[in-house]
Every structure is written in C-alpha cells, then in structure tokens.
Design a binder for these strands. Structure first.
Lengths: 248, 248
DNA sequence: TACCGCTATTTTGCATTCATTTTTTGTCCA
DNA sequence: TGGACAAAAAATGAATGCAAAATAGCGGTA
C-alpha cells in the first residue's frame, strides 16, 4: 500500500492535522480529515502559486484513495483556495492584484461589521483583555519586533470578531483570512515607520470607540484601518519583492 | 440505466439547470452541473427542513452515479445549506432562530459594505436606474402589491451590490442570500403597514446617501435597514406561522 | 536545428464495486 | 400485546476500474 513517491516538483511532507476549527461535522469522516489537512497544507503555502495540485501524489502522501481527496478538492475550490480546470485537474489559485483588493475590502467589511456587533455585546472583561493586547502590541512596536507586533495585532482583531458573538461571521472571516494568508504580504509592508505609527494611532481610536460602545463609529474606523492596511499591502506587492521568497 | 423511481417522501421533479452564476469553472464538469442544479433544488425548498437528502434517489433523478453527487453534497455542506451526519448521510440544514439572526446580521454587514464601496464607484446612470426601481417599488407599495414590491426591493439591493464592483463580495452575498432564501420569511412579514412604511422611508434615505456618495453614512443606513428587516422577519417567525406551508 | 504531426503514457472524470454501518424487519418469549 | 433480540435489507463511505481527455515523447521533414 505505502508505495514510494515518484519525484515531482511538489515537496512531499505530510501536513499534521491541526486542531479542529469551523466546519460542520466534517472532521469525523475521512473526507473531513483530508479536507482539514489539505486546507492547511495549501494555506501554509506548501504548493506554489498557480501550480497543479498533484492528485495521485497527494493520495500516496496521505495514504488514501482518490475519492475522498477529490471531494476535498471540490470543497477547497468552492472556498476559493484552488481552482478546477476542466479535464486538467486543480491548480492553486493565483490571486491577481484585483482579487487581493477585493478580498481586503471584504475582510474590511467583515471586521467593520464585527466591531459594530461587538459594541452591542462585549463585556468589560473582554475590553480589558483587548487593552492588554494593545499594550503588549505597543511594546513590540517600540522594540521594532514585527513578528510579535503582527501576532498581537492579529489576536486583537480576532478578539473583536469573537466579541461579535456571531459564529457565522466568524466562520466567514476565517475563510477569507485563509485565502489571504497564502500571500505573505505582512512580511515587510510595515517596514515603513510612517504606516506603522499610523496603524498604532488607528488602534488607539479603535479601542476608544470600543470602550464607548460606539458601534457605527467603530465600524467606520475599522473599515478605514483595514483599507489603509490594504493600500500598504498592495503597494508592497507591486514593488520589487525584496523579501518574498517562494519557499523559505 | 434509467430505472423507475421508488416512491419516498421527496417529490421527484428534475430541477431545470439555471443560467450560470458565480462559481469558478464548475459548470463545465458534470459535478459542477450537478452542484448548480442541486443547490437550486435545495434553495427552492424542494426538500423539507431537516429531511434526509436521499442519495440514491437523487442519482436516479439526475441520471448520474453517486460520485459526482456526493462531491456536490460536500460542497453544499461547506456552504452551509446541508449538514453531513457521519454514516447517516446528509440532511437539509435546519436553521435555528439564532442561525437566522446571525445570517441576517452578516447579510446586513455585507450590504453595508456594498453601499460603502458603491459610493466610490457608482455612476450617475446606475443611480438613475436605482431611482427608477425605487419609484417602481413605490408604485407597488401604493398598490399594496407585495410580490412586486419584494421583487423591486431585491433588485435595488442587488444593484447596490453590483455597484460595489467586487466579485468576491457579490459571490459571498449570493451565498448567504441562498441560505436564507429557504426560509420564506418574506411571505408576509411586511403585512404590518407600519414596518412597510418605515422601509420605504429608509429606502429614500438610502437613495439620498447614495446620490451624495456619502459612503459611511450609507453604510450605517443600510445596516440599520437590514437590522430592522431582521427584527421583523424573526418576529414573524416566532409567531403562529399562518401562511408558511411546507410545500405550496 | 526547429517545427510539425503522430503515438504512447499519464491524468482526469465518472461509474462501479466492496466493506461497514445503520436501519428495518421478523421472530421469539414474557 | 409488547418488548428485546437477531437477521436481513439498505444506505453510506471509500477503493477500484474504465473510458475519454490531456500531456509527453518521438520521429520525420524542411
């Protein structure tokens, strides 16, 4: 059964199944397990942009037949991570600049919504936790620790989404975030101190609005914040990509 | 091959394939064709809430084998239209009141986003077209023509989404709209003249903000508008469901 | 050598088959 | 009569098989 793997372009390393996330009850069946693992595999960028998804090879790698794999591929295609070419299998979807702009805007809309809803339901404790993250992030900012900064930043945004108390929104958010994650835009766009300082100010405004439970105001600020992020990211992408190697 | 269909609970009438919509390139393959038809079949409410999706029966009805059907089912499950029970097949997803509230809020967020984006890109001609629809809708309102009213109303909202110039958003919007469509909330919630008149006023405010390209203002109005819709719909659902037959 | 057309191999899409699990049916016994 | 158990039937989940399509390989010709 466990046959040797013929060498092809794609690096073969079985992705570890991550802890459960969204998804109805997929994780129970083999198909669901495959779906989770394959999604992570793609999101983490293990297959280069626009490259074919080698069906047979993945089957051998995962030790399964083609049926459940193909089912998972169909789902990933519906999610927008890969695309299906008739009689030519699946390719990792290549996002055009336009696609990225669209995705960023949709993310902005979802976060903007999350902020609005969060204002209706968020507890003082949750706000305190976010403040905590904010100060933590500020520390990273001062120390120019970009990695830490982004981690804290992401957790703040996730906290806001969580405070919205809307699982449907959360799932949609995770889905779009996954599509974008393949693009390593965050790598160095904030090198510009200018933008970085701006972002910090925006985050302060976010916190302020959140404290006051000013829903529609927060909604505005979040949208604008994400819009600015988008601009920075896109600008970065169109410039010479100094430090965005295909596979590190 | 074309065997006779054993009688079961589910009405067997092949759904006509509708014109293409979203979806990558699905429509080319058999699987994609099935996906489109099956989605419409479910969205149109041909299978009762919470009922099993009869695999074998659908295969016979569609004249295909189980493989492409099951692929389509997996996608529909990912879209949230049905749910997969391990070893017990698929069921049409039953939306709780909470689910509906969540869905409405997400729709509100997406439309709110659409309005904001539309203000950046909409042409005068498009605005004129929406005004046209608005007057048309007003006519239906005056004549108490609910069906016409809802049609015009839906076209207005779709026009706004279209004016946002964001295919990603449009697809997501269509997806969520489909999930809700199964619930025939619109049937008579607007019987209350009160709410109906309110909705008309809100629509006038929407148009006004759109004309002025007041993005964040429009965003607010749209969110509130949808929120009110949600409230009306949910209220309606929790009351004695006078005219919501399972299958007309 | 570059280019074209032809055949062989691989890959894809779907149907079919097989092993389990679930559901139904039937029977026995209190 | 009714309930518990067991066997039969059906359905599900995944593997395998097969025809059609696409890709790669190869030889011939200019």
């Amino acid at each position: 059964m466990k046959s040797t793997i013929p060498d092809t372009g794609v690096p073969i390393t079985p992705p570890a199944s991550n802890g459960d996330r969204q998804e109805n009850r997929h994780e129970a069946s083999l198909h669901g397990e495959i779906l989770l693992r394959l999604r992570d595999y793609v999101v983490e960028g293990n297959i280069p942009e626009g490259a074919r998804v080698p069906e047979r090879q993945l089957c051998e790698m995962l030790g399964i037949s083609r049926t459940p794999l193909r089912e998972a591929l169909k789902v990933l295609a519906a999610e927008g991570l890969i695309e299906l070419l008739p009689n030519r299998g699946a390719r990792v979807r290549q996002l055009s600049q336009r696609d990225l702009e669209e995705l960023f805007d949709v993310m902005a809309g979802l976060e903007s919504l999350a902020g609005r809803l969060a204002c209706e339901a968020i507890t003082d404790a949750e706000i305190t936790a976010i403040e905590q993250l904010h100060y933590e992030m500020y520390g990273y900012y001062l120390h120019r620790d970009m990695h830490g900064y982004f981690q804290a930043n992401q957790r703040i945004h996730e906290s806001i989404v969580a405070a919205a108390r809307n699982e449907t929104l959360k799932t949609a958010y995770a889905n779009f975030a996954g599509r974008i994650r393949r693009v390593r835009y965050s790598a160095n766009f904030a090198r510009r101190r200018q933008r970085w300082a701006e972002a910090m100010r925006e985050h302060e405004a976010i916190l302020d609005a959140l404290r006051r439970r000013a829903g529609s105001e927060l909604s505005d600020i979040l949208f604008q914040h994400l819009r600015n992020k988008r601009t920075a990211a896109i600008e970065h992408l169109t410039e010479p990509q100094e430090s965005v190697p295909a596979s590190p």
